[in-house]
Amino acid sequence: MSGWTEARALLARDLQLAFRRLGQTLLPLFFLFAVVVLIPLGVGPGPDLLARLSGGMLWVAALLASLLALEHLFRPDLDDGSLEQWFVGRREGYLAVYVRLLAYWLVTGLPIVLFSPLAAMMLNLPTQALGTLVLSLLIGTPALTLVGGLAAALTLTTRGAGALLAILVFPLVVPLMIFAAGAVGLAADGFSPAAHLGLLAAFTILCLTLAPIGIRAALKTNLE
């Protein structure tokens, strides 16, 4: 089986499983909207205040939402033994890792990107920043998935990984938060967010190349 067909088969399986449990799959999205409802309840519904806060708040909400399902990123495969198959024979395991992360992003990250304009309007984000918000989420959420994947692999066989996941992810995504929320803030103030978005993309590319190395090392150590 060539790498390409194998990747397609793995991706199809992951997506099929995700669609079969649609309610669970969309939980991060519902969580995002729960936060969106809570913010005005917490800080007051004043449109000016919300406009100032919304960019950063939406990014914080996206980060928190991305943590929700992480525990199940590799755990089911560990439990049914298929995780070991990723590294059997001449396989390096990178293909399976990348495909799994892609599938995970498609079902948890992409919906957030697609529905973010709705959330942004509910929080009164200035219209000129809307495009930047969607673009920053499109560039940035894959990095969230990659760093989250690293944290999930690191905590694979620990007891009670939930809180630990958040502690591990948060410091590593500080640059992401700064570049992304900075881009949205600049766009809202009418400046060009290009530099911030470029740095955001650089961070995502760095994660894209390096995170799977760490994920693979952590998974293999956990399987020993």
């Binding site: 591990l168 590593l172 640059p175 390096l210 995170a211 760490g214 090392a217 952590a218 150590t221 956990n222």
Partner: peptide
């Protein structure tokens, strides 16, 4: 496993 995190942190700290 924690050593992997140490290395990931080292890459990330300058950024």
């Amino acid at each position: 496993v924690a050593s992997v995190l140490v290395i990931a942190g080292l890459v990330n700290l300058p950024i």
